[in-house]
Amino acid sequence: MTNSAIAHLIDEAAVRDAIVRFADVAVRGDYDAFRARWSEDATWVIGDTATTRSMCHEAARGPGESYYRNNGVWTDTFRRTRDGWVFTNRTFQYLWLDFSPFTGDISWPGTGAR
């Protein structure tokens, strides 16, 4: 394992530990320990918000011989309003990106096009 991978595992374990400790002090009603789990500028929002992660695959052919394909992950946060859910933040992380020409044949059902 690389040092980076080990550091990632240590950080992940520390985050999981923070979640477990939070649950423990909340259930026991230990107010001093509960306050110690939070930074001075922390916020705790309970209400009409949501967070999602969704996979995305895009493929497009532009003018001339320009091609674009990618796989990525959208991480979104939403807020409920009287008109429905709206984005409050949207972030895209590329996992794979390719600009090479497409290969293969495509057939659209019912059109006979190839």
Rank of each mutant, 00 (worst) to 15 (best):
A42S: 12
A7W: 05
T77V: 04
S4C: 07
E58R: 13
S39H: 10
T103A: 12
T81P: 01
R53P: 02
A113I: 15
G64R: 02
G72K: 01
R69E: 10
A33D: 05
A113K: 13
G72W: 00
T81K: 00
S4P: 01
A14N: 15
T2C: 00
Q93S: 13
I6C: 05
L97W: 08
R80P: 01
F34L: 15
Y67W: 06
N89V: 03
V27R: 14
A7E: 06
W74A: 00
A36H: 06
D98E: 05
D48V: 07
W96G: 09
S54E: 11
G47M: 05
T51I: 12
N3E: 14
D41H: 14
S54N: 05
R79S: 13
G104P: 00
A50N: 04
S66R: 06
I46D: 10
R16P: 02
D32P: 03
N3D: 07
R21A: 09
F34V: 10
C56D: 14
M1G: 14
L9R: 14
R114A: 12
D48P: 03
T51D: 08
A13M: 01
I10Q: 08
D32A: 12
E58K: 06
D11E: 13
T75D: 07
S54R: 09
A13K: 05
R69M: 05
R69Q: 08
F34M: 09
R80W: 03
T2G: 00
V15R: 03
D105I: 14
S4R: 10
T51G: 07
G112K: 06
F87V: 00
F102G: 03
F34Y: 08
L97T: 05
E58T: 15
V20P: 04
S66D: 05
T81F: 04
R53I: 11
C56A: 15
I46H: 05
G47Q: 03
A5R: 02
Y94D: 05
R82G: 08
S4D: 13
Y94E: 04
T43K: 07
Q93M: 05
D41P: 04
W44I: 15
D98T: 03
R28L: 13
S54L: 10
P63G: 08
S54I: 06
R16Y: 09
V45I: 14
I10A: 10
D98W: 02
M55Q: 12
S100M: 06
W85F: 02
G47W: 03
F102E: 10
S4A: 15
P63L: 07
I6E: 06
